[in-house]
């Protein structure tokens, strides 16, 4: 059997959240640079330039990219040969706490949706667990901002509404969001599954690599169609007009009930901060 030490997890989670809040992924920066060259709207172009400038200041002057350093969202892929002799969830929350305390990040979590009392350390994180073969622990994290999350939507369509129904719902969501979700966006679309599964699919979609395409032909076609249509809406950077409304559309699908066609749209703002790290399990001496 194998394990990953508690301290290694705590420190990794801490470093990932701090790093993501200050350093935007280079591939995403390249996307902004390409978009800035192609943007024809004057204000849109100037906003894209400022987004590029902002990430340079963040990196070089140690200031978070955005004041909304988000809710800590974590996807774990746990190798089946790994065992943990400690509370994994507690270790992760310790890592999150350290990141937000030591990294000068904003604490944006309240204890109860109605009492609105701040937990003061940005915990608890939202953690999703999956199992994979092997002895590695893959950690994917994102500090997810509230503005774009608030504009995300879910709808249970009828199967007869088909692709057109999905496209209309996605476009309607982007239009309703306008500048509020801080475009240019990464649009995560979940289709299929059921009520809770489809929301998770949409979230997993925004965790995908910025330049990848779906392996499913149906989903890939939908991604291309949606990206084109979204960028024809003239919403543009920060909703002030232009060609650059979305940088990418990611569609994740799952089988569903004969009666259902669930669709969820999770929006990611332009400050699309995320990280992934793989920890390799260490062999433990088994006395059995």
């Amino acid at each position: 059997m194998y394990t990953v030490e508690r301290n290694e997890i705590i420190n990794t989670i801490k470093d990932m959240f701090i790093d993501s809040a200050y350093n935007l992924n280079n591939k995403l920066v390249n996307k902004f640079e390409r978009a800035e060259k192609l943007e024809t709207n004057k204000l849109g172009k100037s906003i894209l330039r400022k987004i590029i400038e902002n990430q340079v200041i963040a990196k070089t002057e140690n200031i978070p990219l955005c004041q909304d350093t988000g809710v800590a969202v974590i996807f774990l892929e746990i190798g089946r040969q790994l065992i943990f002799s400690y509370d994994l969830e507690k270790a992760i929350n310790t890592g999150v706490r350290k990141a937000y305390m030591d990294g000068y990040l904003r604490k944006s979590i309240v204890q109860h949706p109605l009492n609105r009392i701040n937990t003061l350390d940005n915990t608890p994180a939202i953690i999703h667990y999956n199992y994979i073969p092997g002895k590695n622990l893959n950690i994917h994290i994102a500090p997810k901002g509230g503005g774009s999350e608030n504009m995300s939507r879910l709808k249970m369509l009828s199967p007869s509404e088909g692709e057109e129904g999905i496209i209309n719902f996605v476009l309607e969501t982007i239009k309703l969001a306008g500048g509020k979700a801080c475009p240019p966006l990464i649009v995560g679309v979940g289709i299929g599954g059921n009520f809770e599964k489809v929301a998770l699919l949409a979230k997993q979609a925004i965790f995908r690599k910025i330049n990848d395409s779906s392996k499913s032909l149906i989903d890939r076609n939908l991604e291309e169609k949606l990206l084109k249509k979204i960028n024809q809406l003239d919403i543009g950077p920060m909703g002030l007009g232009g060609l650059t409304t979305a940088l990418a559309v990611k569609v994740n699908s799952y089988p569903c009930h004969i009666a259902s066609l669930p669709v969820a749209v999770n929006l990611q703002c332009h400050s699309a901060r995320k990280k992934e790290v793989t920890l390799v399990g260490k062999k433990i001496n088994n006395s059995n």
Binding site: A58, P64, C269
Partner: peptide
Amino acid sequence: IAIGGLGAKLS
């Protein structure tokens, strides 16, 4: 309005 997501620059 100010431009959203420019937290570092605006600071």
